[in-house]
Design a protein around this nucleic acid. Structure first.
Ligand code: ZN
Ligand code: ZN
Ligand code: ZN
Ligand code: ZN
Lengths: 136, 136
DNA sequence: CGAAAGATGTAATAACATTACATTATCTTT
DNA sequence: AAAGATAATGTAATGTTATTACATCTTTCG
């Protein structure tokens, strides 16, 4: 089975369907939106989507946006190499820019070390208006 | 009406109830937990809590933790002076540390400026294990 | 083959949040 | 004080997001 664009880990049918849906989207999708888009492909229940999303997140192919309760496909080739990724979410058009800033994650790790906080995951989400929406 | 600890803006009855509940808690509370704690005080419906939380957030007295769908009272006197606040959430005990790191927010604002992203709000949430839980 | 692990299908329910509408309190102006 | 405006409240219903429970099927591997 080689359905998807990035088949780093071999994806199952449901995982591929969900991943391809996210890859084709230009904005974050909620689990239920994904489900609706995949009804014709045979998906019937939320759990089918949530299970696929879990695996895709573990594989680093998909990110969850906490402030949106929604998901996007990873757009950064070297995303896994960076300890913390940031997302800039446009409040007008809904588009999301993913970026890594090493000095940002360095600062965070320094704070964690100084405070003896054993860091396992960081969430950085920026809200605002993107350049093209500001121009319009 | 001067019921609450920090009455910077004059709080209404429901706002005070919700704020005092959060101030008394040692961990983040969900809106529905707050509601349950305030049934005896006369609160009946989720909306009563959500409305109070909205006002308290506007006033900067309460923060929403996006990755937890929960709320905490602000514990930083000068929180509003800092453009972006970070939260370190312990995955064992549930306690949350709130801190401000100016160089962190400087980095974020620099990125936003370079990318012409009109930043309105930043969410920074760290997950991990706090010092006392690591020692235990 | 047969056990174990993983993936799937389905239903039900839990948890979180908002819309809509009616009412009451507070403040402002006359 | 009366009238009108604004903000807060009460209540019900509904919408949205996520998980639990249980049965079935598939793949892997000794
Ligand atoms: Zn990524
Ligand atoms: Zn935009
Ligand atoms: Zn604060
Ligand atoms: Zn802890």
């Amino acid at each position: 089975m080689t359905t998807s664009l990035a088949d780093t880990p071999e994806l199952t049918k449901n995982q591929s369907l969900v991943f391809d849906t996210l890859t084709g989207a230009t904005r974050p999708l909620s689990a239920y939106s994904i489900l609706d888009l995949l009804r014709d492909e045979g998906l019937r229940a939320p759990l089918q989507v949530y299970r696929a999303l879990d695996k895709l997140q573990e594989a680093g192919l998909v990110h969850r946006l906490e402030s949106l309760n929604a998901f996007i496909a990873c757009r950064q080739s070297d995303c896994c190499a960076h300890p913390s990724v940031a997302f800039a979410i446009c409040e007008i058009c809904g588009q999301v820019r993913e970026y890594s800033d090493d000095s940002l994650s360095k600062r965070i790790r320094a704070w964690a070390k100084a405070e003896n906080f054993a860091l396992s995951k960081t969430t950085i989400e920026l809200r605002g208006v993107c350049q093209s929406c500001a121009e319009a």
